[in-house]
Design a binder for these strands. Structure first.
Lengths: 249, 249
DNA sequence: CTATGTCGGGAACGGTGTTCGTGTCAAATA
DNA sequence: TATTTGACACGAACACCGTTCCCGACATAG
């Protein structure tokens, strides 16, 4: 869309060339750069987000971006912050703290999954932006309201973030493979699971007795079910700390 | 070490040039390629492991590697498998199942940390090699011996692997930053933690009351302590499933 | 001694992030 | 109004990357 059209044809010299071909649509701001980078991310994955490609999408050269962004790393960080802004945090309700924790983890999962490939960035950077802080504050306040000891709650923030991010990251890898493979999502998944199942079944039963016997359990459940299980593991573990030190300690 | 020595100096033409400069030390096998790749990984990090660099370290050109390895992805996979071979699995003891699970997770953590940057690869690939299978079989047998329901145990294998890998991955990022930063490990960590602490303290208390109040708890604890906490969370959660369905169900 | 075939590797292709220096425009100044 | 100034845009280039093509050198077979 909005192609400037055949710029390889030289402009007539008599036409005063104050504008080579493209009018200055917009002044090229940091926000606009992040916009198109995110659009590119959602459409073609993280690998497509190169400085050159973003610049091209903006109708300019890669050098122009460095006036608004210090480099690729900062661009990724800005993208991550933008996405984090979409996460909604509930008002803490002491009676429902563990369910609220689950809901918030699901919300984080939902938002991250909507821009799945950003998880690769999220794994690779320590979040310090205002939106990341807002989420941390939210998780902390929910847990404290529920009577989770402060030290436990503080450590758990990282655990939840790490868990959600790692999960989406794994899913994004499958998406990338599927993109490279070409077929549809169901087609890809069916083939992948079939291969793994065959591999498990073909293992020598004397060396891998339990794996071979429990192929069914190992393969069962989709991504959502596994996410819920890990979340359950985490919250149950956390609840055991609260039970040990009831509420008002 | 074992530098071939100043190859930029042309060989005298009268010397019959049957061997340009370097004799064929060894026939260049897949194993040797993985060897030097791992050495490079430990010494300079994953980013230093490029096909060109590995070839150079072997005294040859990048094209030569493709006879023994299909590409960079396969090379990384071979490295991951090699590292996974170092993980030792205990003989299952039903009475100590949860402690054995902890020990195995620590062992995985130890081995992965020894080649920390491999975690980035480990996050990015679905392990299917024989050594990965051996570990999966080990974890599964420990949990089944302890009376963990098969479906729960099957799901938990992924959870443990994901947790350990993600944790080492985060640590490896700090190492990479430190490498880029230049200073010593303690110096870097002190500076990093100081910056984060200052940032937390400087937040507006009306918007981030809990974060500001609990800066101490948020910052306390090193990597090992946090790893143990997350592991504890996971195992406690798992134990709650076993208690719910005692042993023989 | 010649023919054959396998394998190593130099050179090249098309990409990447980043920097330098120049050119162009618009606003501020004289 | 004419001129200076300064900020911004960006073409070109540098040093890398993974991968492929293709040629030449070697060991072996005839």
């Amino acid at each position: 869309m909005s192609d400037t059209g055949a710029p390889e044809m030289p402009a007539p010299p008599w036409r005063s060339r104050r504008r080579p071909a493209a009018p200055p649509r917009q002044p090229l701001s940091q926000e606009r750069i992040v916009d198109v980078a995110l659009r590119l991310l959602d459409a073609e994955g993280l690998d497509a987000v190169s400085m050159r490609r973003v610049a091209q999408e903006l109708g300019t050269g890669p050098a122009s971006l460095y006036a608004h962004v210090s480099g690729k790393e900062e661009l990724f960080e800005l993208m991550r912050e933008r996405v984090a802004g979409e996460v909604r945090i509930p008002e803490p309700d002491p009676a429902r703290w563990s369910e609220q924790l689950r809901e918030t983890a699901r919300e984080m999962h939902r938002v991250l999954s909507a821009h799945a490939d950003i998880a690769r960035v999220s794994m690779a950077t320590i979040p310090t932006g205002p939106n990341a802080m807002r989420i941390a504050e939210g998780l902390l306040s929910i847990m404290l309201a529920g009577g989770v000891p402060p030290q436990i709650a503080a450590f758990t923030i990282d655990q939840i973030s790490l868990y959600v991010t790692a999960h989406v990251y794994e899913a994004s890898l499958h998406m990338a493979r599927q993109r490279a493979h070409g077929g549809s999502a169901e087609e890809y998944m069916a083939e992948f699971l079939g291969q793994v199942r065959d591999y498990f079944s073909s293992l020598p039963p004397d060396r891998f007795p339990h794996v071979v016997r429990h192929v069914g359990e190992l393969m069962s459940g989709g991504g959502d079910e596994r996410f819920e299980f890990g979340l359950d593991l985490l919250v149950r573990g956390l609840e055991s700390y609260v039970a040990a030190r009831p509420a008002g300690a």
